[in-house]
Design a protein around this nucleic acid. Structure first.
Lengths: 341, 341
DNA sequence: TTGAAAGCGGTACCAA
DNA sequence: TTGGTACCGCTTTCAA
C-alpha cells in the first residue's frame, strides 16, 4: 500500500535499502547490470512500501511516454467506440497506453486535439482526419510524431494510412439495390471533403454507369450530415417531392435515423424502402431487426492501423504505407445472425 | 510551426528574447507580476516559434496534471460511451482532460487501471467499480486521490457517489409489467455483487410484494451476464422449460440481445413478450423499433459526477456526498420519439 | 517587474 | 555490479 501521506519515490527506497536511486531504478526496470539478488531484494522492498512508478518523471527524461493518441470524431458513435476498444487492446499488447481525443468533425477541435497530443508527448497518433482542410495534418507532420491516418486520406499527402475500399463499398451497396430492381436510390452522404464520402459516391456512380442507368442529381445529398438531424433532412427531401425507392446512408447510425424518419412519414410502408448503411456495426451491435450494411470484418481498421503505427514508431524512415482493407455486403438478421455476401 | 528537429522550449524563447525562462513561463501563464507589454511580446515570439507547452514537465513540478481518469467496464458499450462523452465535455469546461480506462468487469484489470491512473498522477478519478471485492476501492482510498463512484456503491464504504435510484428502477419496470397483467417476469440480472443489480432485484421483489404476487426463484437469473452470450443463457432457460411471459434485463444492450434470442426461438411471437431494459439509451441511440427502458435523463450520472469530483478536488475535506438520481420509465417509439412516464 | 537557483522524480551516462 | 551526477522542461521561491 502506498504511504498515507504522499507518493513513495525511488529516493525513499534508496534510503531504506542503502542503495542509490540509480541502482533502485535499474533494479526495478530489470536492467541486466544489476545482480539478481539485489533486484529481488529491491523489488521486495519496493513492493512492501507500495511503490508505484511516476510515469511523468520517467517520460520527461527518457522522451518516451509509451502512450498513443487516437483522434476521431466521436467516441460515442458505437462503431468508433468499438474500434477504439480494439485499438486499446492492441496497444496494450505492445505495452502502450491509449488516450482518446474527439474532434466532433470540427477542424478547430481537431487542431486542439493534435496540440493536446503533442503537449502530452504521445509517441504516436492514429487519426481519422476531419479533412475540412489539409492544414491540421500538415501541422501534425511538422511535429515529427509518427501518425497513421484511419478511414480517410489525402491525395496530395504522403502519409501512412489504413483505409477501407470505399469505392467498392459504394459500388456493392448500389449494385445490390440495382440488382434488386431499385432505380431511384437516394444517396445520403456526408461532407464532400471527406474522402470516404467522395469515394462511396464514386462507387455509386460506377454501379449506375455499369448498368447503363442515369444518375439523378436530386437523389444525391452531400449535406453536412451529423448524427441527430437526419429527420429534418429527410423531411425536407420528402417535402421537395423527390422520389426515391431506396436509400444508401453514410453510416449505419445514419441509416437507423433515416429508417426512423421514414417510419414517421410512411409508417409500415417504410419497410418497402431498403436502407443500406456503411460500417458494419452488426458484428458487435446485435439489434432486434434486420439491416444491411457494407463494411470490413469486425476488426475494421483497428488492429491493422495500430500495427502500422508501431512499425512506424520503430522505423521512422520506412517508406509510407497505404493499406486498403476489403469490404463486403453484410446482412444482419437477428435470427440468422450475420451473413456476408 | 514547431521546429523541424525538436520541441521548442521555454529556453529557446528565453534565448531569443533575452528574458529568462522564468519570465517566459510567467508571461505565457498570464501571471500578474509581468508587464502587459512583456507578456504581449513574449506571447508573440512564442507563437511565431510554434511553442507548445510540455504538460508533463509542468505537471511534474506543479504536482497537478489537470487530468481526470474515468474507469469503467467497457467504453464500447453505447450507454457508457455516451456518458463518457458527456464527462469529457464537462471536464473540458473545468479545464481538465480525461483519460479512459476499461476494466471489463474484471478486478485485476480494475487494479491495473487504478495503478495506471496513479502512475499518470491524475488529479481525480470517476469509477464505476467492478465490486467483486472492496479491495480495489480501499486501495484507491489509500492513494489519496479524490474519486467519485458512479452507478454503484459500497454499503460499508464512506465515499462520494453518484447513483441512480435502482430500487425504484427495478420497481417501476416490474410494476409496469404487473399492471399490464404479466405474472411470469423473467429477471435477467448481472453479477450479484453489483449493487445496482441487487437493488433492481429488490425493486422487482417490492413490486411483487405490493401486488401480493409470489416470487418464483427460477425466474431470477443472477448469472454472470456479459454482453455477447445472452443467446446461450436464454437457450438454456428455455430448454429448462422455465415459463415466462415477459423479461426485465440488466441493461438495454442485454435487452436487445435477449430480444434477438427470443426471435430465434419464437419468431414473430417474440413481439408478445415485452422486454424492459435499464439505462435509457434511447435518448441518444434512435433505433428503428419500439423499446422500453428505465433510466435517468440523458445526462445520466455524467454531469453530476464530474461536478462532484471537482468539488471534491477543490475541498478535499468536505463531507462525503451520495447523490441518488431519479429514474423513470422511458418508452421509445421511432415515430413518436421518447415518451417519459 | 524580473532574474537566479532549486527541485519535481525519474533515467542516462560515465566513472569506479 | 554499483555510485555519482547531470539533466529532461517546467514551476516555485526568494532575492534583486
Amino acid at each position: 500500500m502506498p504511504s498515507e501521506k504522499c507518493r513513495v519515490t525511488l529516493k525513499d527506497i534508496a534510503n531504506k535499502t542503502g542503495y542509490t536511486v540509480n541502482t533502485i531504478s535499474r533494479a526495478l526496470n530489470n536492467k541486466n547490470d544489476i545482480s539478481e539478488q539485489t533486484k529481488k531484494y529491491v523489488k521486495e522492498v519496493a513492493d512492501s512500501m507500495g511503490y508505484i512508478n511516476d510515469s511523468m518523471a520517467g517520460s520527461l527524461r527518457s522522451g518516451k511516454t509509451k502512450t498513443i493518441a487516437v483522434i476521431l470524431s466521436d467516441i460515442s458513435n458505437p462503431h468508433l467506440a468499438h474500434q477504439v476498444k480494439l485499438i486499446e487492446l492492441s496497444a496494450i499488447e505492445y505495452g502502450y497506453n491509449t488516450i482518446i481525443l474527439n474532434t466532433d468533425e470540427n477542424s478547430q477541435y481537431e487542431r486542439r486535439a493534435i496540440i493536446s497530443a503533442y503537449e502530452k508527448r504521445v509517441d504516436g497518433i492514429l487519426i481519422c482526419p476531419v479533412q475540412q482542410s489539409e492544414d491540421n495534418i500538415r501541422f501534425l507532420q511538422s511535429m515529427n510524431i509518427p501518425f497513421v491516418l484511419i478511414g480517410r486520406y489525402f491525395k496530395n499527402l504522403d502519409a501512412d494510412a489504413v483505409l477501407s475500399d470505399d469505392i467498392k463499398a459504394g459500388y456493392i451497396a448500389t449494385k445490390h439495390l440495382i440488382d434488386k430492381g431499385f432505380r431511384k436510390i437516394l444517396f445520403m452522404s456526408a461532407q464532400e471533403y471527406i474522402s470516404s464520402a467522395r469515394e462511396r459516391l464514386e462507387g455509386y456512380t460506377k454501379a449506375h454507369n455499369e448498368a447503363n442507368l442515369p444518375i439523378h442529381n436530386e437523389l444525391i445529398h452531400s449535406t453536412n450530415v451529423k448524427t441527430g438531424n437526419a429527420k429534418e433532412i429527410m423531411d425536407s427531401i420528402i417535402q421537395s417531392n423527390i422520389n426515391f425507392d431506396s436509400v444508401i446512408a453514410f453510416s449505419d447510425m445514419l441509416a437507423f435515423e433515416i429508417k426512423c424518419a421514414l417510419m414517421c412519414v410512411c409508417g409500415n410502408e417504410a419497410d418497402n424502402i431498403p436502407i443500406i448503411g456503411f460500417d458494419g456495426v452488426q458484428s458487435h451491435l446485435p439489434l432486434p431487426f434486420k439491416y444491411t450494411s457494407v463494411g470490413m470484418d469486425k476488426d475494421g481498421w483497428a488492429k491493422e492501423s495500430t500495427k502500422l503505427l508501431f512499425e512506424r514508431i520503430q522505423y521512422p524512415t520506412m517508406h509510407k504505407k497505404k493499406i486498403v482493407r476489403n469490404v463486403s455486403l453484410l446482412n444482419f438478421d437477428p435470427v440468422k445472425g450475420n451473413d456476408i455476401t
